[in-house]
Simulated scan of single mutants.
Amino acid sequence: MAAANMMKLKRPNMFWTSCATHTLNLMIQGIGCLPKFKRVIDKAKSFTIFIYAHHKTLALMRKYMKKRDIVRPEITRFATSFLTLQSLNDKRKDLRIMVFSDEWEQCKHSKSTKGKMAYATMMSAHFWERVSLCLKVFEPLFKVLRLVDGGRKSSMGFLYGKLQKARNEIKETLKNNEANYRQILQIIDEKARDRLDGPLHLAAYFLNPYYFFKDQSIQHDPLVMDAMFTCVENFLPDNYEVQNQSYSNCVLYASLVSWWSTYGNRVPNLQRIAIKILSLTTSSSGCERNWSTFEGIHTKKRNRLDTTMLNNLVYVQSNAKIMTKKEKENGKKMDILLASEASMAQ
């Protein structure tokens, strides 16, 4: 962000935004650091670490889980706490049967201090109630995270609206009690400030028919309209006549529901701005995955690869991963990125 502020002086007509994936992940981590959530996450971590630390407990877990794992941290990149809690909650019944079994009792590790703590955690009704609460709070943000990180559609037009919806869902989960949700919303607002509420995000929210025609009060929000006018000025610098026309078009669009469908083809400048903004992505994760592929190919033992060969190898690997992902999605007939399918997301 500091670098972006410096570059704004040299490129005043460019917008600089942060990666939404990382920002949302920071939100989830920040909420997870609150005492009432941290205690639950720490207990879940302690249990999983204990299970995976001993081959006997690991074999016992896989027997009762039918060879399924609780976590797969080497695959999951973001929101690991949420996915771990979701996985534990999905397997709650089998885990409780496991720690109550004779095999667990006969295992020498179960008699240790950590083993007794693991047993107490799984049998605690209060722990599972807190796990359920954590999931209800994290899930709305996790859905936004998967939207921006999924790469299935341009997310700029939905990011701000989905984030506002997540805030409202968290309020409802906590029964609209301000004392319960105040700290959570403070973390969300702090992390989103200047990162997920910039002119591009607000203008995309305004131009997206999904939100505008559902709630036309958007046009009365001064922050949204100021953001839209800022985008017009930056997209059409030094052209004040066209800027004034675009301002008028924005006001008309905000005033009449049927205006766009009737006169939309007569405002090419506003059309171009809308297309440019609504077609933007909000995450750099795709680029980062590409960099990871480069790092995997260009190792110390392969440091003599020329640029053409390196690019070709990355091209093949990246496309192979995309094809594999598409095959999995088509085969299972489901969106593996949905929060309700946490195991598939892992």
Rank of each mutant, 00 (worst) to 15 (best):
N89K: 15
L207K: 00
K67Q: 11
L223I: 05
W128H: 07
I187Q: 02
R167K: 15
A342L: 00
D42G: 08
K276H: 07
Q164H: 09
Y211W: 15
T76V: 04
I97W: 10
S292V: 07
C231G: 13
D238S: 14
A274P: 01
A204F: 04
C33F: 11
S279T: 14
M65W: 08
L34C: 10
H54T: 02
I31Q: 05
V144P: 00
I273A: 03
L185M: 04
M123G: 06
Y210G: 02
T21S: 07
I188G: 01
N25C: 04
K328T: 13
F127N: 04
S217W: 00
F294K: 03
L145N: 02
T230K: 11
S132L: 03
L85I: 07
T84G: 05
K162C: 15
S112K: 11
P73V: 00
K91H: 12
N269R: 10
I277L: 14
D238E: 14
W128E: 00
F142S: 09
N311D: 12
T281E: 12
D42R: 12
T293D: 13
F294N: 05
N5L: 13
L236R: 07
K214A: 14
F37C: 14
A20T: 09
R195P: 00
Y315T: 08
F213P: 00
L207E: 00
W128Q: 03
D335K: 12
A125Y: 08
Y210P: 08
F158T: 00
L147H: 00
F15N: 10
H109M: 02
A79L: 06
L270D: 15
